[in-house]
Design a protein around this nucleic acid. Structure first.
Lengths: 213, 213
DNA sequence: TGAGGAACGGAATGTTTCGTTCCGTTCGAC
DNA sequence: GTCGAACGGAACGAAACATTCCGTTCCTCA
């Protein structure tokens, strides 16, 4: 029986700690997704660790929330980059939405806004995310697959709508979101009647990030 | 100059109190829509009254939340009844969604669930609401306007998605929701590719109302 | 193999938030 | 002119919560 000595050691105190890093962040994601005002103790309980395991890693609640949100932003960017690699313009657009909805990454960057002061690096990531989405929307629209009156900011509305769907079972939640997304994609494809009202503008959704109160 | 002596007198202590009834309920709606965990003092402040004006009317926070939710349920039913009067099957369905989205009535009955123990009367109203929606969906589907694989419970998903859209300005919020709803309606109309996954079931959305924890 | 300390669990603490009560005041009703 | 309904807001007590602290475990490294 060979003893595993690979790069990620499976036993030992350091390994346990490294694994806790991920466990805690995952628990925090689940907890704050469920209730943005949840106490920090709920995260510890969900992760199955003590409170000190949290404070060893993060300076405080705000630091945890910031890290969590930053992580979500990076996942968002990664999803957009992966989807952009798809050659078919519509598949790239639809695949992007599916990835983001499946990963439940949008609510993280939205419902936690205002609970911490963002870093400059997060600002850069947000700009990059916006550029990527803009590219995907542009491709699908230029290819004549996406209705021409859809703007980049509409994607935020879609994602927020999908993220609002939630049932106790995570798998079922994903299924229902996909179903909802399918309706949206059907409504997004050409042809269709013109959309009412002025389209959402660029500066219309960063109010969550502006100084609190 | 004739003196108004009609049924709702515009001056006097009683009249002021009667007006406060509505003011307080409206303030509570706005506050708890914005933050389901908001303190009661926030409602008083928003309504421009003291705290005692609240406690004169409601036994406590739970009583206020229950009343608020009950009120929302009644508005929901009223919207469904009004919409059902429309002869065109699709217009009835679409009009219903527009009314509920405009009145922002769905989030009230959803995000407040679990914060109070519901009354039997609310249960009856909920059943009635479900029957009405069922009727509207059935009409639109039987008329061949609504895609046949849409079930009544899908409406809950749509409404939740629309309600999740929120910007500081209420009017703009309504515009954006209408825009989002237009995409959804376009995706809901026949024809369209089949929707993925098993459709939502009847008992899949009352988990919010089941005993807390 | 033994000492040192990284990692941790969870009780303790101090503070803030919040629901509710209480009291003094106002002013229309009768 | 008197009574009390309606009210504003301070005061109170309890609960929630972020953070700190201390004792324990057990890997790590020499």
């Amino acid at each position: 029986m060979p003893k595993p000595t690979d790069s990620p050691p499976l036993a030992g105190r350091r390994a346990q700690a490294a694994r806790n890093d991920a466990t805690i962040l995952a628990a925090a994601r689940a907890v704050f997704l469920d209730d943005p005002k949840a106490p920090i103790a709920a995260v510890a309980e969900r992760a199955g660790v003590g409170i000190s395991a949290l404070y060893r890693r993060y300076a405080g609640k705000e630091d945890l929330l910031r890290t969590l949100c930053h992580d979500g932003l990076l996942r968002f960017v990664a999803a957009a980059e992966e989807a952009a690699a798809e050659p078919d313009d519509w598949a790239a657009f639809a695949g992007f939405l599916e990835r983001v909805v499946d990963a439940d990454v949008h609510s993280l960057t939205v419902h936690l806004a205002g609970t911490f002061t963002p870093t400059e690096e997060m600002g850069r990531a947000a700009v990059r995310a916006n550029e990527l989405v803009d590219g995907l929307v542009g491709r699908a629209r230029d290819a004549g697959r996406l209705r021409p009156d859809v703007v980049t900011q509409d994607v935020g509305l879609l994602l927020e709508g999908c993220a609002a769907i939630r049932v106790p079972d995570p798998d079922r939640t994903r299924q229902l979101r996909r179903r909802h997304l399918a309706v949206l994609l059907a409504g997004l494809a050409v042809p269709g009647p013109p959309l009412p009202g002025p389209p959402p503008g660029v500066g219309e959704f960063d109010w969550r990030w502006r100084p609190k109160q």
